[in-house]
Design a binder for these strands. Sequence first.
DNA 1: CTTCACGCCTGTCAGC
DNA 2: TGCTGACAGGCGTGAA
Length: 274
Amino acid sequence: MPEMPEVETVRRTLSDKVLGRIVRHMDILLPRLIKWPSVHEFQENVTGKSICQLRRRGKYLLFDLSDGMVMVVHLRMTGRLHYNPVGAVRHPHTRIVFKLDTGDELLYIDTRTLGTLHVMPESELNRIHGLTTMGPEPLSADFTLDYLRGILDGRQGNIKALLLNQQYVGGLGNIYVDECLALAGIHPERRAGAITMDEIEKLHTAINQVIDEGIRHGGTTLRDYRDGEGASGNHQHHLAVYGRASKPCRNCGTAIVKSIVAGRGTHFCPRCQT
DNA sequence: CTTCACGCCTGTCAGC
DNA sequence: TGCTGACAGGCGTGAA
């Protein structure tokens, strides 16, 4: 569900509200979401600490706690973090409640319960494989045109699978990959290594532009996604291809095609993307 | 090494 | 109305 723009929006909408707050108590309603260390240790390591900083890396959210511990949350498909003012009713799919010193709550909500939570010292974050191996993010200084050229060079797989792989580019997911390829005019099944220099430039620009717009629109709400205050995003109104199967391409009017690429539902314009 | 199918979960929707 | 199967924004694992 949430990709980089959504997770970044959650971070922004939550930061002001939780920074400096102390976690007084936790209700872990669904213990199996805690992946490290044990549920008991997790509770001990978080309770009584204040939240000093809220960071994001790719699709991970990192809560820096007052004693150097870091709580790492990944929302996977349907995870949400909501700031819940004192007395407000809890979402029915609330799985973990962080009770703050103000009486307000931070809720971890997750319909499909695929999300993950870890807590560990900063120095041990390498326990989380997906964090350790993550490639540079769009809009970051490391995500250069040369870098993109380098990871495409000689690659036999299709471009869609490559862009979905967090080891190459961190933060892209199924929606934004389709949107990036549409903007760059590249067919999702093109062999990555066969993409021309000219197209790689377009793709590099497209990735940065799509992610930037996604963030500026507060993310894409198709069904489940909400920001830290429970509000929907707006980027769903600006999508070029995702979710628009059989609707006319905004550029040429040809019907958008939906197929399966890299095992995922994939949308593209058969005329504009070659 | 890469690529693919699958499992993890619940909810929704199309088709019958 | 009710049932079944496909599918959904992610990612780790194991097999090929």
